[in-house]
Amino acid sequence: MGLVQEFKDFAIKGNVVELAVAVIIGKAFGDIVNSLVADVITPLLLNPAMKVAGAENIKELAWNGVTYGNFISSIINFLCIAIVLFLMIKGINKMKKPAEAAPAGPSSTDALLMEIRDSLKK
C-alpha cells in the first residue's frame, strides 16, 4: 500500500474527522467563554470588586522585578473562566433529556424462583 493510500485511509476514518470537528467546536466555544468573561463578567463584576478591594492595577504588582501581580491576575482569570464554563455546561446538561433507563433484569432471588418454577413444570 502506498503512502498516499495509507494517508487517505487515515484521514477518512471517522475518528479523525470527529476529532477535527470537536477541536473546531471546542475552539469556538472557548472563544465564547473568553469573550463572556473578558467583555461581560470582568467589567460588570470583577473590576468593581477590585476597586473596592483597592487592587485596581493588580497586573502591575511587583517585588524586586518579580511581577507576581500578573500571576495573580492569571489565576483570577482562570477561576472566572472555570466558573462560567461550569455553569454553561450545567445549563446545557439540564436541557438534555435524560436517557430512559433500560428495564432492570430480574433480581437474583427472582431468577432463582423462576428456575425452581421451571424445574417444577418439568
Rank of each mutant, 00 (worst) to 15 (best):
A49T: 14
I25P: 12
F78A: 07
K13A: 09
G26H: 03
L113F: 11
L120F: 12
A53M: 05
A82N: 14
S119E: 15
V4N: 12
F86T: 13
L85R: 12
A38D: 13
V21T: 11
S108K: 09
A11N: 06
A55L: 12
G69H: 10
K122G: 08
D110E: 15
A104I: 01
S74K: 10
K8S: 11
F86N: 05
N15A: 09
V17K: 15
W63E: 13
S119N: 00
N34R: 11
K27R: 03
A111Y: 09
A49M: 10
I25E: 11
K27Y: 12
R117N: 11
M1W: 07
G91W: 12
K27C: 11
V37R: 01
G69Q: 06
S74G: 04
G14Q: 10
K121I: 11
K122V: 00
E56R: 02
I58H: 07
F29R: 10
M50E: 14
R117A: 15
D31M: 04
I58Q: 05
K94I: 07
I92E: 02
T109D: 05
K94H: 08
K97M: 04
L46H: 12
F7H: 05
G65V: 05
G91M: 08
S107K: 01
A104Y: 00
I32L: 05
A49Q: 10
G2H: 14
I89F: 09
I81W: 08
I41S: 10
L19Q: 05
P43M: 05
A62D: 09
V84D: 11
S74Q: 14
L87I: 15
I41M: 05
G26F: 03
I81S: 00
G69I: 11
G54I: 05
V52T: 13
E56P: 06
A55E: 09
P103C: 01
S107M: 00
S35L: 12
E115F: 10
K121F: 03
F78G: 00
N77A: 08
K8L: 09
P48G: 06
F78R: 09
D9C: 01
G69E: 12
G26A: 02
G91V: 11
I32N: 03
M88D: 00
T109A: 06
I116N: 08
E60I: 07
C80M: 12
K51W: 03
W63Y: 14
M95I: 09
K90L: 04
I12L: 14
E18T: 04
A49G: 01
D39F: 13
F71T: 15
M50H: 12
L87N: 13
I75M: 05
A111M: 13
L113Q: 12
T67A: 09
E18Y: 04
N64A: 02
E115C: 08
N64L: 13
I58W: 01
K8W: 05
G30D: 02
E60G: 08
K8H: 14
A49I: 14
E6F: 06
K97R: 10
P106M: 15
S74D: 15
K122W: 03
G91C: 05
A104G: 08
L3F: 10
F86I: 13
L3Q: 12
A102D: 07
D39T: 11
L36F: 08
A53E: 00
G26C: 00
E115P: 07
R117I: 13
I81M: 01
G54R: 02
L19T: 14
N15E: 14
G14A: 12
E115W: 11
N15F: 01
